[in-house]
Design a protein around this nucleic acid. Structure first.
Lengths: 336, 336
DNA sequence: CTGAAAGCGCTTACAG
DNA sequence: CTGAAAGCGCTTACAG
């Protein structure tokens, strides 16, 4: 690694002090216009870049922001990350990506590792509803914003989608098919998105005069493989016509495959709806009806909120909290 | 941000010097076992974490590695990132994610920004064949490994897939359908993957006694939207039956949609094959035949190579280069 | 085996 | 407007 140009190098060339250079470069008022001009030009010609590490050591803060998700290659998280990265990068922050693999222990370990790097802040999607990571961040005074999932609906800073409404809209759509029983392929109930979506869909059914049979919900579906298996299990036990509401598009994708493998037709035999609006499922056959979750904006808004918190006047008395809930919408295609 | 525990805090409690603490914590030989034990216990009980920023300033190196890609939310890159992150994280490195948006200017700017943070190394997928970013990294002495695309086949450190073979395999498969002309929906030729895949497919056709008509290749397809539009254009001009080789699965996805919109059948009217093996296309109808690119391993191997370079003995005379090419394979499904 | 000195590159507070 | 001093937390020599 070659040595970078430092303030001292510039000062030496100009026969002046490091302080003068620092002031010129940082728009300090106590500097003559002439000096400033001179310094700026030389610095540029020498390809000077400030040493962020030294700054960080001196100021106890950095330009690093970590985003913690289950898996960056899950298209859902990938879009959230993109939204966050774009905003952060524009504001001069660098984005650290941390995959928790939905493992609370791993997540906690990684969060602790962040303590050592003067991280400016964290965007956190808590693994499996894990509350400890957030507690550690609080304990060490690292600012953070929860994204996608909240831990306590009434507390802290978070940006989530209106998951209750997502569940409500999905079930309302299915409720229109009066001739079929309703089943649900679901995620792990510990997570806020799973609980909210479930409450929403049960309420929607109630509002449509349908009492949901609690034994018709299959928990523990994480990915499309689970959706496939769970749908087959369902079809072993129950007969079409039926309706299926899926916690996620990926689960729906697996379920659709199972339905096809059984030689059944969508939506003739089985109506199915997903949630998330994963882009490429617009290309499935039939095109999957789903609920749009603004993934990119989830990341973007969370990043904006975090930056706002970081720039907050430290003398400001009110320790404000922001609980932002983004709207969700029905994307009605051909599977219901 | 609360103040973290420092060496000095520990030293004060133990009535000794900072140096002794540092030595105890870093397995320095010059320290008594008793002292060491004592320090280790106290440090743990005080929740001490070393200040990586101070270390970095002192040692001129950090634990940050940046991965530069076009778009982290593209499933192709997302898997490469995952492979890299997993390896880096295991070795104690933190992964910075940088989206170039395939814009060479933006990429260059971001790379320059990395100079300021004592970055340990970079994994680079050069935007649109941009050579400047790599030159800057060379200039500033920042170690890097190219991933997915190379700049000069004979030079530098890179990990790529055998794209020539990918093109060769895809075209060989299509060549079996003797009754139809072959067309290609392609990416930008500046990029090594595009050139290699093209050379491979043309050679395969030659080996099958087919002279490829150069006017049958449509360049400039980046995503599925382009694939859709390009396929429609093709169908305006040419009549099925025909075969289409697509630079990527995403382009193929768009093309398949266009074909469906025209009321044509795959593979009866049109044979189509992709490259990349994007996971969910296993669920398309019909299931897309494609060429498997080991995306995860691309990221993993590149990360491993970079770490090897970083840990290389600086006195070692030979400045070794590694040009790693990972095998690709036909994934034969139902679209040809 | 222990520790005082110097320095990584920068900025804050202060003196001139 | 200019600059000498001190310090952020650590480690590399080096002296005892």
């Amino acid at each position: 690694m070659k040595r970078n140009v430092t303030l001292k190098d510039i000062a030496t060339k100009l026969n002046t002090s490091v302080m003068t250079i620092s002031k010129a470069l940082n728009n300090h008022p106590d500097i003559s216009a002439k000096r400033k001009q001179e310094v700026l030009e030389l610095a540029a010609s020498m390809n000077y870049v400030p040493n962020a590490v030294a700054k960080s050591l001196r100021n106890h803060k950095s330009k690093f922001i970590a985003i913690v998700v289950g898996d960056n290659s899950n298209p859902y998280y990938a879009r959230i990350i993109k939204g966050a990265e774009e905003t952060l990068s524009k504001k001069g922050y660098l984005t650290l990506i941390i995959n928790s693999q939905e493992d609370p222990d791993k997540e906690l370990m990684l969060i602790d590792q962040l303590r050592s790097v003067h991280i400016a802040g964290v965007l956190l999607t808590p693994a499996a509803g894990n509350i400890e990571s957030a507690e550690h961040l609080d304990k060490y005074g690292i600012p953070y914003v929860l994204v996608n999932r909240y831990l306590d609906k009434e507390k802290g800073n978070y940006v989530v989608a209106d998951d209750y409404n997502a569940g409500y809209l999905a079930a309302s759509k299915l409720a229109m098919k009066k001739d079929r029983d309703i089943f649900a392929l679901w995620f792990i109930p510990k997570v806020s998105t799973a609980r909210e979506r479930e409450e929403g869909f049960i309420q929607a059914l109630k509002d449509n005069g349908i009492e949901f049979d609690k034994s018709h919900i299959v928990y523990g579906c994480v990915n499309h493989h689970d959706g496939l298996r769970a749908m087959h299990d369902l079809l072993d036990e129950f007969k079409p016509p039926m309706s299926v509401i899926c916690y996620s598009d990926f689960i729906a994708l697996g379920a659709m495959t199972a339905i096809r493998e059984r030689g059944l037709k969508i939506p003739d035999d089985i109506s199915i709806i997903g949630i998330d609006d994963i882009e490429f499922l617009d290309y499935s056959i039939p095109r999957l009806s789903t609920i749009g979750i603004p993934k990119f904006r989830l990341g973007k808004r969370a990043a904006e909120l975090l930056i706002k918190i970081l720039n907050k006047d430290p003398n400001e008395e009110i320790n404000f909290e922001h609980q932002i809930v983004l709207a969700t919408e029905l994307i009605d295609r051909d599977s219901v």
